[in-house]
């Protein structure tokens, strides 16, 4: 069901397919930890096309492919690309498609992964397109929650920070709601989740500006960065920058088993002292990016 599939938008992956991805990712964990060796993707070439920098995602894909014995070609520096010379993305993709078996693309324009999928014969995996989709991030977020609790249904999940501009958080919200989680949306009113996103949710989320109001109920607290570059108006940014800061003191009111997640990099929305608390899961979450991407690569290449 995955061989040759493009992974462009999370909405195209059914809950059943997600379970399959997570099942394979689970098996990939010992390989990702180098406790086992694998040559599953030996002889395969991954083209890692990063038209904008995203070190974390790029390294995670490189690690995933390498641990399965495959090779990685590509670029990380947009100014070195042919795009800088005026070549269309469509042409770049058609050329790279001839050199590789699977293409991973990160691009500043929204919808560029869909375009790549239209032009490539080989599977294309979207590693983030502008403020658009970032399905592998969503999958690793869900995998983290699922591994921790064994299920997603009926969990109380709080999303905090920029719920307006961050479209990755929109995709995550959509899927969490689809899978039956109870959602708590915590943001300043300036950064509330757009109405058209809320309209698509299965159940009505609880919206609040104050984390203290809902923290004791949460199983998962998903923290997002408030990114300056997303704001059309710098004055708006100044009003909300640094509004939330997760500290061990604040977490004293959290459930004992509650976990704190973050897509990283963090700036100051989670204090470093939280790292040592039993709640911190963001580094483990980052690690899960590798087995989840290993699973996707193996699945779309049809080797399992």
């Amino acid at each position: 069901m995955f061989r040759g599939r493009d992974i462009v938008s999370i909405k195209e992956i059914t809950p059943k397919e997600m379970d399959k991805i997570f099942e394979v990712a689970e098996e990939m964990i010992p390989i990702a930890q180098s406790a086992e060796r694998s040559s599953l993707l030996q002889g395969y070439v991954l083209a890692n096309l990063f038209f904008e920098p995203s070190t974390r995602t790029r390294l995670s894909f490189e690690s995933a492919m390498s641990k399965l014995g495959g090779h990685v070609i590509g670029f990380a520096n947009p100014s070195a690309t042919s795009l800088a010379k005026g070549e269309t993305l469509a042409d770049t993709i058609r050329m790279v498609d001839e050199y590789s078996d699977v293409i991973v693309i990160r691009h500043p324009y929204e919808g560029s992964a869909r375009l790549a999928a239209d032009f490539a014969k080989h599977p294309v995996i979207n590693a983030g397109d502008g403020a658009g989709q970032h399905p592998t991030q969503t999958l690793l977020d869900l995998f983290t929650v699922k591994r921790e609790f064994g299920h997603i249904k009926d969990l109380n999940v709080g999303l905090i920070g920029d719920l307006k501009y961050g479209r990755t958080v929109h995709s995550l919200t959509y899927v969490l709601s689809n899978l039956g989680a109870n959602l708590y949306l915590i943001s300043p009113s300036l950064l509330r989740m757009p109405k058209h996103i809320i309209r698509e949710l299965k159940t009505k989320p609880l919206e609040t500006e104050k984390i203290e109001n809902v923290l004791p109920e949460l199983d998962v607290l998903y923290v997002t960065r408030i990114q300056k570059e997303r704001f059309p108006d710098p004055n708006e940014y100044r009003k909300v920058a640094g509004i939330y800061r997760i500290t061990p003191k604040l977490l004293e009111n959290a459930k004992r088993h509650a976990i704190v997640m973050h897509p990283l990099p963090r700036v100051d929305e989670i204090s470093p002292e939280v790292d040592a608390t039993p709640h911190a899961r963001y580094f483990l979450q980052a690690f899960y990016g590798v087995p989840v991407r290993m699973a996707l690569l193996a699945l779309v290449l049809g080797v399992i």
Binding site: T88, L89, A90, H107, P108, Y109, E110, G111, S112, R114, L115, D118, D129, G130, A131
Partner: peptide, 13 residues
Amino acid sequence: TNPKCITNQREPI
């Protein structure tokens, strides 16, 4: 209408 949409760039689509 999205100026950042790939369809609004110079692409053959």
